[in-house]
């Protein structure tokens, strides 16, 4: 297991928490498409997520590729740790 700093786990968990709410709201909205409040909450969280993604990627590298994240030089998508290594 690669030893990552405490801050890594904290930031990762923050991202996982927001993403969980977004997954949950996505499934909910799939069957409740007219819930205005839920959509408002969804869009707020989506915005919050964008900031967290940027923060995470600046510190620990790209979360996605195929152009959904920027790359450092050299190409850092292959860098460990992969999710099962932390």
């Amino acid at each position: 297991m690669k030893q990552m700093p405490k801050e890594y786990y904290e930031l990762l968990e923050k991202l996982q928490a927001v993403d969980f709410a977004l997954v949950e709201l996505t499934l909910y909205l799939d069957t409740h498409p007219n819930d205005y409040q839920a959509i408002q909450q969804f869009n707020q969280l989506a915005q919050q997520r964008k900031h967290l993604k940027k923060q995470y990627e600046t510190a620990y590298g790209p979360l996605q590729q195929y152009g959904n994240s920027y790359s450092n030089y050299p190409w850092n998508w292959n860098d460990t740790p992969w999710p099962w290594q932390v």
Binding site: E13, L15, L63, Q64
Partner: peptide
């Protein structure tokens, strides 16, 4: 698109 993190720790 793959995301390099688990859904839950």
């Amino acid at each position: 698109i793959y995301e390099k993190k688990l859904q839950y720790p």
